[in-house]
Amino acid sequence: MTRFEFIVNGPPVSQQTRRPHRLEAWRNTVRQEAEKYWSSEQKTATGLVMLQITYFYDSDKMDVDNIVKPIQDAMKGLAYVDDNQVSDLLVRKRNLSNNFRIENMTSTLAEGFARGNEFLHIVVIDAPNQEVII
């Protein structure tokens, strides 16, 4: 795997939700959206990966750490064999009404902004060198 990215309309559902049916529906939504972007040339990663998640929101009360686990679980068997392969995480929230600059905008990320609503941009890449700690 070199890079796999996709977008999902938000808002996400927290791992801490008290409504398990909502959590399961959210995992299914993430998986279905990921499958739309998955190409037959891509291979499921068998080594360590880095997961990058950016939640672009209008109004939000969710902690970033509660966003991660349902997305990790939804990607099992597609982008990677098991979520224990995720060795590195980068999770961000950005308010759509704030000013920010995006460097190296991909067409997938541009598609998310073009939708005109809250969304998550999710990227799975090969993990960085495990011998180097920054």
Rank of each mutant, 00 (worst) to 15 (best):
Q16G: 01
L109G: 11
Q42V: 02
I102E: 11
W38D: 06
A114I: 01
L90D: 13
Y55W: 14
M105D: 06
H121C: 07
K76F: 07
E33M: 09
R3H: 09
D82E: 15
L96H: 01
E131P: 00
E5S: 14
K61T: 15
T29M: 08
M62I: 12
L78R: 12
A34F: 04
Q15I: 15
T17S: 10
D73L: 15
A79G: 14
M1V: 14
L23H: 02
Q42K: 14
D65C: 06
D60C: 15
G47E: 14
G116R: 11
E33H: 11
A79F: 07
Y80K: 00
D82I: 03
Y57D: 10
G47D: 14
V86L: 04
H121M: 07
V81P: 00
S59A: 12
L51T: 06
A114S: 15
L109I: 06
N98Q: 11
N99A: 12
I67R: 00
V30T: 03
R18E: 13
A114G: 13
T44P: 00
L96P: 06
S87W: 01
N104E: 07
Q130F: 01
V49D: 05
F113S: 03
D126H: 03
R101V: 09
A79P: 10
V91M: 10
I71N: 04
S39A: 10
I67P: 03
A45T: 05
A74Y: 08
P128E: 12
N117D: 13
E111M: 03
G10W: 02
H121T: 04
L96R: 13
T2H: 12
N99C: 05
V30G: 01
V68S: 12
G47L: 08
F6N: 01
P12W: 02
T17R: 06
S59C: 04
G116W: 08
R94P: 00
V123Y: 01
T108D: 06
E35W: 09
V86Y: 03
N95M: 11
D82L: 05
E35V: 10
T54Y: 01
D58L: 11
D65R: 10
Q16S: 10
R3N: 11
V49Y: 05
I122S: 04
N98R: 07
L78D: 07
P128I: 05
D65F: 07
K93N: 13
Q16F: 07
L90M: 14
D63L: 11
Y37F: 15
Y37E: 06
T46F: 09
E41T: 14
Y55K: 00
R18W: 09
V91R: 03
E118I: 09
D60K: 03
N129D: 15
A34T: 07
R115N: 13
L78W: 09
L120V: 03
R22D: 11
F4I: 08
V13N: 04
W38H: 12
S40E: 13
L48G: 10
T44F: 05
L23N: 04
P70L: 06
Q32L: 05
V124T: 03
D58R: 10
M62L: 13
T106V: 00
F100W: 12
